[in-house]
Write a protein that binds this DNA or RNA. Structure first.
Length: 290
DNA sequence: CATTTCACCTGGTGGC
DNA sequence: TGCCACCAGGTGAAAT
């Protein structure tokens, strides 16, 4: 479900509704797949902590957490604690996989099937992680002696022309496969790979290392455009994606090729083709993309 | 090493 | 109504 624009939308929604709140209680389902950190360890780390803020890196949601301010009688210790509280000392890292949702609800809302985590907050709200296919992952990371989370790949919204081109130099795999490789770029998935390649006029099967400098720069700019536009529209809701408030996105209405097999190309009228690249359904216009 | 394939899951859709 | 094949926003391990 979620690629960079969807995860960004969710991060903004969760941040707006939970920033500064305190996690009172954490509950986890019995399924083991979604837990990179054992549920007990996650619960122990999460309970009592304050949510400083929530943001996205790549396709990951990161909740920056800090200690609840302790009641102390010494003013200097209190100052130190307040100072320390500026810096997060732990993170809750959420990957939504294919079908994951992170919702902010009230406890009276019915609990959806496949709910795997519930964080009850001091405000009375609740963060819920729902994931039917269980491809998502939840991790708790203590930042004492451990670096904060960051993906291996470059962020597509901020990577420069030279660094972008360097990612693909000498590579023999299809450009579409390269775009999906999260150790090169982080955050691009099947929808935005297809859409950016269409907008740049490049066939998905072209060898990454054989694209010209001009083509690569066009691809980088179109990728940035499509991601930014999608964020503005709250992401793409192809089947069931919703943001933190349960609201669908609108970018699916702007798709040129994704899931439009056999339909007329919106630029030239040629039927959109579907092929397999890197094992993924890949959509393109045989006339507009060379 | 770079690249490709496949397993991991549930659920929706469309054909018969 | 049921059964079956196939498809789906991702990724990491195993095979090539």
């Amino acid at each position: 479900m979620p690629e960079l624009p969807e995860v960004e939308t969710i991060a903004r929604g969760v941040d707006a509704r939970t920033r500064g709140d305190r996690i009172v209680e954490a509950w986890f389902s019995g399924h083991s797949e979604p837990f990179k950190t054992p549920p007990r360890q996650q619960a122990a780390g999460l309970e009592g902590r304050i949510i400083f803020h929530v943001h996205r890196t790549g396709k990951h949601l990161v909740c920056e957490l800090g200690p609840a301010s302790r009641l102390v009688d010494s003013s200097s210790i209190e100052r130190d604690a307040a100072h320390e509280a500026q810096r997060p000392d732990a993170q809750w890292i959420v990957h939504l996989g294919m079908t994951g949702r992170l919702l902010v609800t009230t406890p009276d809302q019915p609990v959806a099937k496949h709910t795997h985590a519930r964080l009850l907050l001091a405000s009375g709200r609740e963060i819920r992680f729902v994931d039917p296919r269980r491809f998502g992952r939840l991790e708790f990371r203590d930042l004492l002696g451990c670096a904060g989370f960051r993906g291996a790949g470059q962020e597509p919204l901020t990577v420069g022309a030279a660094a972008f081109a360097a990612l693909f130099r000498g590579r023999r795999l299809a450009i579409k496969a390269a775009l999906l490789n999260q150790t090169l770029l982080t955050g691009v998935g099947n929808i935005y790979a297809d859409e950016s390649l269409f907008r740049a006029g490049i066939r998905p099967r072209r060898q990454a290392g054989r694209l010209t400098k001009t083509e690569l720069e066009r691809l980088r700019l179109e990728l940035i455009n499509v991601l930014k536009h999608a964020i503005q529209l709250g992401g793409s809701s192809v089947s069931d994606y919703v943001d933190a408030n349960g609201v669908r996105g609108f970018f699916q209405l702007e798709h040129f090729v994704y899931m439009r097999t056999g339909e007329a190309c919106l630029r030239c009228g040629t039927p959109i083709k579907r092929i397999l690249v890197a094992g993924r359904g890949t959509h393109y216009c045989p006339k507009c993309q060379r």
